[in-house]
Amino acid sequence: MVSRKLTVVNASGLHARPASILAQAAGKCKSNVIIQVDEKQVQVKSILNIMAAAIRCGTEIELICDGETENEDLETLARLIESGLGE
């Protein structure tokens, strides 16, 4: 299991569009992907779960990947989140 702390840069937080991009990207990962925000654990492969977490701009999150491809997956997803998920 590997993890990294990140900050959400999207002005409106992880709303529908960025959530959809993140869920799609996570869906392609073989490892299990979770975002830890405060006490909450968010299943990143689920757009509903991401949106329901209402993660706002500036929030610190911990991205956790667990599985065979965890290192590459963490790298790919972390870069995507840091770049603002296409926004």
């Binding site: 529908a16 569009r17 959809s20 869920a23 799609q24 299943q43 492969k45 689920s46 757009i47 509903l48 779960n49």
Partner: peptide
């Protein structure tokens, strides 16, 4: 509809 498509295929649902 892209977001709707994601919701329809969502594993939480």
């Amino acid at each position: 509809f892209a977001a709707h498509q994601e919701i329809a295929g969502d594993f939480m649902l």
